[in-house]
Nucleic acid binder design. Structure first.
Length: 297
DNA sequence: CACTTGACCTGTCCGC
DNA sequence: TGCGGACAGGTCAAGT
C-alpha cells in the first residue's frame, strides 16, 4: 500500500477538501470494505461534519463532530479520491475524473451535502473504513503498540536501538517493516533506507554495527521526506486525494531497479526475497559478512 | 515472547 | 490465445 509518504500526501489533500463537509449518504460493499453497524453509521456518520484529517502510521483518521471518528487503512491498493463540487461548474482541478469514478474497484462512496464525493477504491479489498469511538482510539491494540512516527521527535536513536533489541534475531528488513519498531515503513522505504545506510536487508538485526544503525536511523526520515516532496511513489495503484500520481520512484535508488546500476557504485542491483517480500539491494554497497545472514528467505 | 508462514483479494505478467 | 503460477506497496492469526 501506500506507505507513510503516500498516506501523508493523501492526508494533506483530504485536509484541504474535507473539513466542513457534511456527510449526506454512504454506499458501500459492506461489510467487506466498510465493516460498520448500519445503526452506528446512521447515528454517528450520516449528518456528521468532518472537522479534521489526522494520520497515525499508515492509518487515516477522519475526525467528526460526533463521538466517533472514521479510521481508514488503504493496505496495498486502496485509494481515496475526492471529486469537488462539479455541479457548481467551479472547474475543480480533477473534474476530468468525473465519469471515470466510480469504477469497478470502488468499494465505498461518501456523498456530501454540497454534492462533492469521496471515493474509496481498493482493487484487492484488503483495506477498510471503520467507525471507532474517538475516545477509545488510543486503546485500540494497533495504536497502543505502534512505534514512533519517523518524522516526529520521539523517533530518537535511543528509542530506535531499544526497539530493535526486541527483534535482534530477525533480519533488519523484517525489523523495520515491523510497525511496532517504527511507524509507516513499508517495502519501498525499507529497501531505500537500507541502501542509503549500506546495510544488507537480510543481515541479522543484532549483527548490524551501531555505526550503520545510526545511518539507518537518519535514512528513514530522510527518504520519507524526499518522497513526500515528490508526492509519494506510484508503482501501480497509488494516487493522491486529487487522483494524481507521485513521482518518487523516478528518484528511487534500488526499489524496482533490479538489473540497473547502483546510483552510488554502478554495480548491478539485485532482487531477492527477504522477510517474505521482494527485496532490492546493491550487492556491492550492502555486503553481508559471512554467517551474519538470517536463516529464512 | 520472538519469529515465520499463510491468509485475505483481484489483477497482471510471464512462461509454456 | 489460453492457462497456470508467481507476484504485487500491508497486516493479522496461527503455527512452531
Amino acid at each position: 500500500m501506500p506507505e507513510l509518504p503516500e498516506v501523508e500526501t493523501i492526508r494533506l489533500g483530504l485536509q484541504r477538501h474535507l473539513p466542513g463537509l457534511i456527510v449526506k449518504s454512504v454506499s458501500s460493499d459492506a461489510p467487506k470494505s466498510f465493516p460498520n453497524d448500519p445503526e452506528l453509521v446512521r447515528q454517528f456518520l450520516i449528518g456528521a461534519t468532518i472537522t479534521k484529517i489526522d494520520r497515525r502510521a499508515k492509518v487515516l483518521l477522519f475526525e467528526l463532530n460526533t463521538d466517533y471518528s472514521l479510521s481508514v487503512h488503504l493496505k496495498m491498493t486502496g485509494q481515496l479520491v475526492f471529486i469537488g463540487r462539479e455541479r457548481w461548474g467551479g472547474g475543480h482541478p480533477n473534474d476530468s475524473l468525473l465519469g471515470e469514478l466510480p469504477d469497478r474497484s470502488t468499494r465505498a462512496t461518501m456523498h456530501f451535502t454540497d454534492e462533492s464525493t469521496l471515493f474509496f477504491n481498493d482493487q484487492r479489498k484488503f483495506g477498510w473504513m471503520r467507525l471507532v469511538p474517538t475516545a477509545e482510539i488510543s486503546e485500540i491494540d494497533f495504536f497502543r503498540k505502534v512505534g514512533p512516527e519517523p518524522l516526529g521527535t520521539e523517533f530518537s536513536l535511543a528509542a530506535f536501538r531499544k526497539a530493535l533489541a526486541r527483534r535482534k534475531n530477525t533480519s533488519i528488513k523484517a525489523a523495520i517493516l515491523d510497525q511496532t519498531i517504527v511507524a509507516g515503513v513499508g517495502n519501498i522505504y525499507a529497501d531505500e533506507s537500507l541502501h542509503i545506510a549500506g546495510i544488507h536487508p537480510a543481515m541479522r538485526t543484532g549483527d548490524v554495527p551501531l555505526k550503520k544503525i545510526k545511518l539507518l536511523h537518519a535514512a528513514i526520515p530522510d527518504v520519507m521526506r524526499l518522497s513526500l516532496a515528490h508526492g509519494g511513489s506510484s508503482d501501480k495503484n497509488y494516487v493522491d486525494a486529487d487522483g494524481n500520481k507521485g513521482s518518487y520512484l523516478k528518484f528511487a535508488r534500488v526499489f524496482r531497479r533490479e538489473g540497473q546500476p547502483c546510483p552510488d557504485c554502478g554495480a548491478i542491483i539485485e532482487k531477492i526475497r527477504v522477510a517474505g517480500r521482494g527485496t532490492h539491494y546493491c550487492p556491492a554497497c550492502q555486503k553481508l559478512p559471512r554467517a551474519k545472514k538470517v536463516n529464512h528467505t
